[in-house]
Computed example of a mutant assay.
Amino acid sequence: MITLSPQFPPLIKGLAAGPANPLTIAMTEAEKGTDAGLLVWSINDQRLRAALVLAPEEPLSRATAGYIACSVGLQNALGVQAPPETAVHLEWAGGVRLNGAHAGALHLYASTANSDEIPAWMIVSVELSISLPDSVVVEPGQTPDWTALDQEGCGDVNAVELLEAWARHTLVWINELDEPNGRATLYREWKGLVWKLGEQTSAHLPGERVAGTFLGVDENFGMLMKLDDGKSRLIPLTALVERA
């Protein structure tokens, strides 16, 4: 069990969850009106879990750009910590891929699902596999759709330092969104990291799976997909908002 306390930048307040679910604690604190920047975390030998509380000042349809900022922040943190040959990609719907295989995911929660309403709070949670369970005995590359850091040559990555790096990079991108061209800057960074852009793929939404060709996104990072039946569909990023 990892017990070292991470050091976070100003505006980020860490709270160790121990074996508890960080998301549950973050939601409880958000409902109480905690300040933005609360980062609840839990790390053991097999996985890293964390939940960051945000306090948007825009309607949900635009505030969800903060979710993209957190995603890019995680990719940047992994890009620094992992060996340079490790490919780290982000699925539009939140999945995190290492060398093409699933290694974790980000999830989005908010106090409202109304895209026109300013949320009282928004939470982005992260779960990342550090190692596969002891019950799974495989050689690297034998589980192409399910992997972990140690299966992809990242066994030396320090999970506490990775969490610290995620907080730092995420804060940079969230602050970037306050700049006049911040959303465009974030988009340019994200575009080079997103999985299967311009290709056939599928998006796993809460209660639905959508398949087709990923054509691009709109100004609020909504996914434009050409469905397998030839029709086009715009899926707003707010479709990813999950219930507790």
Rank of each mutant, 00 (worst) to 15 (best):
V172Q: 11
V194L: 00
V72I: 13
E208L: 09
A165S: 14
A203S: 07
G95A: 13
A20K: 10
S202Q: 12
G73T: 14
D35C: 05
L128D: 02
N181Q: 15
V96G: 03
E208F: 01
D145C: 04
L177A: 09
G14C: 08
K226S: 13
G18P: 05
V40E: 01
K32P: 06
Q7S: 14
R49F: 11
E179M: 14
M1W: 09
V80D: 10
V194A: 03
E179R: 15
F214G: 01
P133C: 10
E117P: 00
P19I: 09
E85G: 08
G207H: 09
D228V: 14
A165D: 00
N175I: 04
I123S: 00
L90M: 13
G192P: 03
Y67V: 04
M27C: 10
P180Q: 15
L193C: 08
C70N: 00
H102A: 12
D45P: 02
R49K: 15
V210W: 02
G79N: 06
W190V: 07
V136I: 15
A26L: 04
M225W: 05
N114Q: 07
N44S: 11
G104N: 06
L163K: 02
T238D: 06
Q7F: 03
A51R: 06
L193M: 14
L48V: 14
E176K: 14
F214N: 01
E189N: 13
T238Q: 10
W92M: 10
K226C: 09
S61E: 14
A36E: 11
A36L: 00
R62S: 14
M225N: 07
E242I: 01
H89V: 08
E91M: 05
V157T: 05
W166I: 01
D229G: 06
D35W: 02
G212R: 07
V80Q: 13
T24E: 15
K32Y: 00
A239P: 01
R97V: 07
A120R: 12
L108F: 06
N21V: 04
A184H: 12
A87R: 12
Q46R: 15
T86A: 11
T24Y: 07
I68P: 01
P19V: 13
V157A: 03
Y109L: 03
T185S: 12
G14Q: 04
L90K: 01
Q46K: 15
D178C: 09
C154I: 01
E208I: 00
A17D: 10
P10L: 11
M225L: 15
T147W: 05
G100P: 05
A103N: 03
N21K: 01
G207D: 10
A167Y: 03
V88I: 14
T238C: 14
A113C: 02
A159E: 06
V138N: 07
P6S: 08
D228K: 13
S61N: 13
R243L: 10
L39M: 02
V126E: 01
G207I: 09
L177T: 08
D116V: 03
D229T: 08
